[in-house]
């Protein structure tokens, strides 16, 4: 089982959006894409705290992955998101905004 918890807080509006995705429950092609994006980002080896100190109104993201006895949570801001994570971030942000799940 693989589960992604995504939360976006802060921003100019202060509005929180979040997602709780069970990859087993998603259409297989979507689950494959997300798994691939996580793999490409080398998620379990990303540093846990990457919140930028001086940004104002920027989003703060909290992303947790639960998979095969491993759990890892990372926090980062718009300007400190690891580049390898950007495609996944874009995908999750769009899902959260569109409330498609």
């Amino acid at each position: 089982m693989k589960r992604i918890l995504f939360e976006r807080t802060g921003g100019l509006t202060g509005r929180k959006v979040s997602l709780d995705l069970d990859l087993d429950q998603l259409p297989p092609d979507q689950a494959r894409t997300l798994s691939l994006l996580l793999e490409q980002a080398d998620f379990f080896n990303l540093p846990a705290d990457l919140v930028p100190p001086s940004a104002r109104d920027a989003f703060i993201y909290t992303l947790t992955l639960e998979a095969e006895m491993q759990v890892h949570t990372i926090r980062f801001g718009d300007t400190t998101a690891p580049n390898a994570l950007r495609p996944l971030l874009e995908d999750l942000s769009q899902r959260a905004r569109a409330r498609r799940v």
């Binding site: 509006t13 940004a55 109104d57 920027a58 989003f59 300007t79 769009q94 905004r97 569109a98």
Partner: peptide, 29 residues
């Protein structure tokens, strides 16, 4: 970014997104 519904000050400059331009018109906030 794409679909960035926010603006911020990064400590040195202003940054502006285009809102929900990547969503269908009926879903844009």
């Amino acid at each position: 970014e794409k679909g960035y519904d926010n603006a911020f000050w990064d400590g040195q400059q202003m940054v502006y997104g285009d809102g929900d331009e990547d969503l269908p018109a009926s879903e844009r906030l």
